[in-house]
Design a protein around this nucleic acid. Structure first.
Ligand code: MN
Ligand code: MN
Ligand code: ZN
Ligand code: ZN
Lengths: 142, 142
DNA sequence: ACAAAAATTAGAATTATTCCAATTATGGCT
DNA sequence: AGCCATAATTGGAATAATTCTAATTTTTGT
């Protein structure tokens, strides 16, 4: 697993921009998130990370994920009280949680739809972010 | 604090419908949620409940809230990993979380908008529920 | 290479929630 | 009303995701 130069640059810029250092661990975790573009929990990230970097600690996994979220290179995704998941897809999208398989699927959202959602806010309200979570049955399970 | 007859009937029907019993505690908690229609955490519900029923336990508060959610008399609301909140507003609505004040405000949603959100799902996906959470600054704080 | 600052690490601490086993309350039936 | 079976409540222990802490290691600029 190797971080492509374009993403390496992205990572370095983002870190530098927020006064943080580039480390093996941060690079490794960013790379593994980009490799399999799903929505792993911290524990799953930890398991994947150890495959190539057996000495990394769970605390570091949490730290790295936090850094990546802060620098907006990945997103955090929560469903109810389940463990937080991490998403490397930075395009505007919602999440669909399949109750059958547990799978989480990205749902693309048009600017127009997001605009409409913003417009229903009462006067004086301004949102930086809208979180949209569907839950039901995905195509594979119906 | 007294549960109005209409709501008492609603509660009893819902409980009966799912083979559960009517208890003082369940009624009390339903009543206090209806009285102040905000979005308290279990701890806050516990605090309010003890004002009139000092012997109620936190476990019971959790149990009652779970029962009310199961019977669809209230909704659960989650923001990130914060403690779960409970909402007695059963109309179709989203939640706006103010980062400044911590306040949670209901945002009404038209059927039409929800319809549009359903329509963006890929073929084969069916959602039972959409959870929409805004976060930003509310009118009071801007 | 050196020093200062930041990151990593292992393990302890925290905290919301769930579980457990004992006690008490409810509702149907006589 | 009294009895019984069943369900609910209770206090405290257990759980689990995440955060904190203090020691060690790594990075970066000089
Ligand atoms: Mn995603
Ligand atoms: Mn609400
Ligand atoms: Zn599925
Ligand atoms: Zn506000």
């Amino acid at each position: 697993m190797r971080l492509e130069p374009q993403y390496k640059k992205l990572l370095n810029n983002a870190l530098e921009g927020s006064g943080q250092r580039a480390t093996k661990q941060r690079e490794h975790i960013f790379a593994l998130l980009l490799e399999k573009r799903d929505h792993p929990t911290a524990d799953e990230v930890y398991a994947r990370a150890r495959a190539d970097m057996p000495t990394i600690s769970l605390a570091t996994v949490y730290n790295c994920l936090e850094t990546l979220v802060e620098t907006k290179l990945i997103r955090q995704v929560n469903f109810e009280r389940e463990p937080t998941r991490y998403c490397p897809n930075l395009t505007q999208h919602a999440h669909f949680y399949c109750r059958e398989s547990g799978e989480i699927v990205d749902i693309e959202l048009s600017d127009q739809l997001v605009d409409e959602l913003m417009k229903v806010l009462p006067k004086g309200f301004s949102a930086q972010h809208i979180d949209i979570a569907y839950d039901g049955k995905c195509n594979c399970c119906s």
